[in-house]
């Protein structure tokens, strides 16, 4: 009786291990992030690491104090990074496989920006709301963002 129970227990463990092995598909593939045309306002490595801090900082400045550089705006990010379908219609950046969603799904972090903010550009001009993006931020502008500086220092070895 006792040996029978052990037999079934071992069989159950083996079967579940087999099921896990059969369903295992290897590591989650690193997402292919859609590339926007032109250049970002800050180096890509800085943006990847610091974009959430920058957005938080900018939102305070824009909403409450109405002082901002004008280049770092969520609407501008979306204008550049929203992909367009064959018909030229802008796709939402938080849609499956799109710019924001591809990375955020990979790292398992859900941004709540788009509960309120529009996820696709709208308005006049090819750049959408706010027009086209000017050149990269000067070093002086990055100096007021200590996070950005830190990130630039950390990422000198590569992305």
């Amino acid at each position: 009786m006792h040996r029978r129970a052990v037999f079934w227990a071992v069989l159950a463990v083996l079967l579940s291990l087999g099921a896990v092995w059969a369903s295992h598909r290897g590591p989650v593939p690193v997402p292919v992030v859609a590339q926007a045309a032109g250049h970002c306002v800050l180096p890509v490595a800085v943006m990847r690491r610091e974009h959430m801090m920058l957005l938080r900082r900018v939102r305070e400045a824009v909403v409450r104090r109405d002082v901002h550089d004008g280049r770092l705006r969520l609407t501008r990010c979306i204008s550049c990074h929203a992909q367009r379908n064959a018909a030229g219609v802008a796709l939402a950046v938080n849609a499956r496989g799109q710019f924001c969603a591809s990375c955020h799904a990979y790292v398992g972090v859900r941004p709540d920006c788009f509960a309120c903010h529009a996820a696709r550009p709208e308005g006049v001009g090819p750049g959408g709301f706010g027009g086209t993006v000017p050149g990269p931020l000067p070093v002086a502008a990055a100096a007021v963002m200590p996070h950005a500086q830190t990130a630039a220092g950390l990422s000198e070895g590569g992305p």
Binding site: C116, P121, E122
Partner: peptide, 16 residues
């Protein structure tokens, strides 16, 4: 309720 298709210049969302 959840809001969809907001205007970029007028963010608005549930719970605010």
């Amino acid at each position: 309720r959840n809001v969809r298709d907001q205007k970029p210049w007028a963010p608005r969302g549930k719970g605010t």
